[in-house]
Design a protein around this nucleic acid. Structure first.
Lengths: 246, 246
DNA sequence: AACGGTAGGACATGGGACGTCCTATGACCG
DNA sequence: CGGTCATAGGACGTCCCATGTCCTACCGTT
């Protein structure tokens, strides 16, 4: 007995192999054939394990060329997080709130740290982003993203930066599915300007406060959406629930 | 042309299927056979797609019984995060620092929110955890985890709570692999006690400060570890780097 | 020397067979 | 009559093999 998921075992073995050999991202993985021989299972089992690894960004597969060690970037989690917010009814806005909340917490603290310790030209770059936000269009959203990413990058914590980027992306996708009202460019620019001002003064508390106000703005916009607010879990229709067995 | 990864396409289709039918976690997925017919690909392709979904916790497979919709809990990310911190040499402590930093940011803000708004008996439960911490042993670590989880749960943001739990687990595993010094039970208890005290007074700033001090303690301990500190990226040995093609 | 065709390596997809695990049903026994 | 065990059926797990597709590198031609 003690047959705890053959393929999971294979997955672990492959990961260990990468870690032990200290293969850097981009390094070629052993051939599926040699993996077969090393681990002693069939090719299909290897392929399924590799597929699981691919879903986590741990390996990258290039058709016809080979499999390579991946960087395990946060993009891999987009599917996960998106599913998590869409599951059980895309109209349940409560999950969107969670997303925003985590972003707010992370960015508040990140901004706090950056406020007292940042390169002089950071403010200029941020200022440029704010200017771009004022012009309506697809570039405004891009500038918004860059604005937040600049601050997160400045803090120097890769993981935190990637996570906030991930949350930003997923929030935007989920929000667009719900079709909320568009944001006002001038209001958005104003909120971001307040953050820049606080950073310029190197005032951590003011910066944190400005970030909070910014998120208040976003929340207010989301509340005005088609489902009337966060936390209002729409009752799940019973239509399909009888498909549940047991 | 335009052959964007057959299996990735299948993965998306399956996710959409779950979302559209609003299948709740635990609901049985369609049979692999019926999926084959619906999507029109072979069973192997379906299986690979499902395998990828399983790696993300989106579906759960019970051998010999069926496949079920998963809850996409944060446990699924453990492999990802663990790999991310172990990749390219387990001795690179810089990644551990990132882990701690995110935890600190999240917990600081979470604690801040909980400080001014929490159930009266939360403090009692926390106090009980602190008492357990004072006794050395495996239960002390468990009490530590419960302590933080209690606070995160109180805030009411599932996502944030799960993430902090995930970071806690991964940090502990990664740390144990590095084999740092054990923490002093009394010092640990003292730091946690300070947090409880601040919560009792419903003083958000004091609570945040206490959390910071707690993490300072953890950082200090990690710095005393075998690799002499955070951020000291050990140079990657060139031994295997010539295996990189291109 | 530059170009293009071709061979080979590696992954993608498809189909089938057999083993294993779980559940449920029904016969058997107390 | 009720409880227990054996068996049948459904569904996933593993494996094998064949063919398609993509990329690289080599080599012959111009």
């Amino acid at each position: 007995m003690a047959r705890p998921q053959r393929s999971e075992e294979i997955t672990k073995r492959i990961i260990d192999l990468i870690v032990e050999r200290e293969l850097p991202p981009g390094a070629p993985m052993p051939t599926e054939l040699s993996l077969m021989e090393d681990i002693g299972v069939s090719r299909n089992s290897i392929r399924e394990a590799i597929k699981a690894l691919q879903a986590l960004g741990i390996v990258e597969i290039r058709h016809g060329y080979g499999t390579f060690v991946g960087s395990a970037g946060s993009e891999s989690l987009q599917t996960w997080l998106l599913f998590r917010t869409r599951a059980r009814g895309a109209t349940d806005v409560g999950r969107l709130r969670d997303l925003l909340e985590v972003r707010e917490m992370l960015e508040t603290e990140l901004t706090r740290r950056v406020a007292t310790d940042h390169r002089p030209d950071l403010v200029e770059q941020l200022q440029a982003c704010v200017a771009r936000m004022k012009r309506k269009g697809p570039d405004a959203a891009e500038a918004d993203r860059e604005f937040h990413d600049l601050i997160c990058a400045e803090a120097g914590f890769d993981l935190a930066r990637e996570l906030t980027g991930l949350f930003w992306d997923v929030y935007r996708i989920a929000e667009s599915e719900l079709g909320g009202p568009a944001s006002s460019p001038t209001a958005t620019a104003k909120r971001h300007q307040a953050i820049v001002d606080a950073l310029l003064l190197r005032d951590a508390d003011a910066a944190a406060e400005a970030v909070h106000r910014h998120f208040d703005e976003v929340r207010k916009r989301a509340k005005a959406g088609p489902y009337g607010g966060f936390g209002v879990a729409r009752p799940v229709p019973a239509a399909h629930s009888e498909t549940v067995r047991r």
